[in-house]
Amino acid sequence: MIARALKLPRLRFNGLVGGIVVAMLLFIAIAGPWLAPYDPLKLDLMSRLKGPSPAHLLGADEFGRDVLSRLMYGARTSAWIAFSTVAFAIFFGVIVGVLAGFLRGWTDRILMTFNDALLAFPGLLLALGFMAVFGASRNGIIIALGLAYLPVVVRVVRGAVLSIREREFVEASRVMGNSEIITMARHVLPNCVAPITVLATTMFGWIILSESALSFLGLGVPPPAPSWGNMLATARPYISQSPHLIILPGLCISITLLGVNMLGDAIRDRLDPKMQS
């Protein structure tokens, strides 16, 4: 609707808004320490649970820590976790999925049996299990969530590869004399990009939410370091007293998800050769 009012094509509107949101997120994540008005760990018991005021623009939390500063530092943690986890899951998921889909036979059977066994557990449960192994640290979370979401990526990539490998241009590449690896890299993989992009942006959302769920269970980013997830989690007892403690990190998560999904849509359309003239 807004896009129509601005007379922008849907694609460009998505790309524009999504791009701005993601760019802002990245900027805050990188420049947060310099922008933040306070040290996010500094206690100020006088302004405990206070709402927005000139001293604390977005209020203060149960220990009187400045919410704005915590959100900025939290952006850094959350963005880092989400991006790294998506990169981790996509990277290994594509390798495994392409191998399974392209080589078929026993490779496929063994990989997929293992993969389907993992897929049977809810992602969060799996992540909890891995957390028990890796410990509650930032890298621990990345590996645990990455492994937990890996089976989904493998499934999607394998499906895309299976449908593309039957197309005749793949056979044409074989008749040309290209090796299987070149055929895979040049003709199969690039045509799987669209579903992978969609999955990656969707996963971004899942991971931010999973991270808050883990924090809620006390297995996320260990306090007192801020992340959007653990801010949400620790604010729960004060929900009626100081709703801004829940609303603000929640809003950050929603806006980020919206932006990432819009950008993902735009990227997917951009990568579709049919959308280019």
Binding site: R167, E168, F169, E171, A172, S173, V175, M176, G177, N178, R186, H187, P190, N191, P273, K274
Partner: peptide, 27 residues
């Protein structure tokens, strides 16, 4: 070489025409 039946699935949708034609020469 082989020419396939369906010209809609025998060309890689992401390759430009000149790259499609030039590809066999790379070998």
């Amino acid at each position: 070489q082989i020419i396939f039946q369906d010209p809609y699935s025998s060309l890689d949708p992401r390759q430009r025409v000149e790259d499609i034609v030039a590809e066999p020469l790379k070998l």
